[in-house]
Amino acid sequence: MDGVEQKDTEANAPSVIDRYYTRWYRADMKGKPCEDHCILQHSNRLCVITLAETHPVLQKGRTIKNINYQISNACSRLNNKVSGKSKRGGQFLTDFAPLCRITCTDETEYTIYSCIRGRLLEVNESILERPALLLEKPSTEGYIAVILPKFEESKSITENLLTREQFESVVSKRSVAQSQTS
């Protein structure tokens, strides 16, 4: 009885994301199957880059060994510093700029990309200390980075992204295909 009531209220849970953010997706990033990204766009145009629930890193049994924001010898996203209201000094990213590489204990490695054009404001250093956060709360505390699109591009940056409905249909087709091949 208690359990039922609990389920009920949890289902009606209001969420900060639902209230203030729009979910956008990029499926099969760079042609790699299921490497889906989720972009949370705030009504103030700012975007939080996260892993979609379907991303291989989040699939059963995987454990993260290492998260690295050093994307090349010359460039580390950890060195990103912005100052002032105008966010001077932030790295400017294009759609396919790598943000970090995640290595799992099974030695699989995944690159997470910016997905949109904009200025990098911050990366999530908390997941360096506690990689488990990424698995437990991928769409909130386990976010990857915060990007601020240019004001004039705040609408156009999502043109190449999938809406939640479109993404769900991609995912459902995917599971049909999988069940057919297996």
Binding site: Y20, H42, N44, R45, L46, V48, V82, S83, G84, K85, K87, L121, E122, V146, L148
Partner: peptide, 13 residues
């Protein structure tokens, strides 16, 4: 407190 995301577009981080 990091500058809240809801005001970060217009305030310094």
């Amino acid at each position: 407190q990091k500058t809240p995301l809801r005001v970060l577009h217009r305030r310094a981080l």
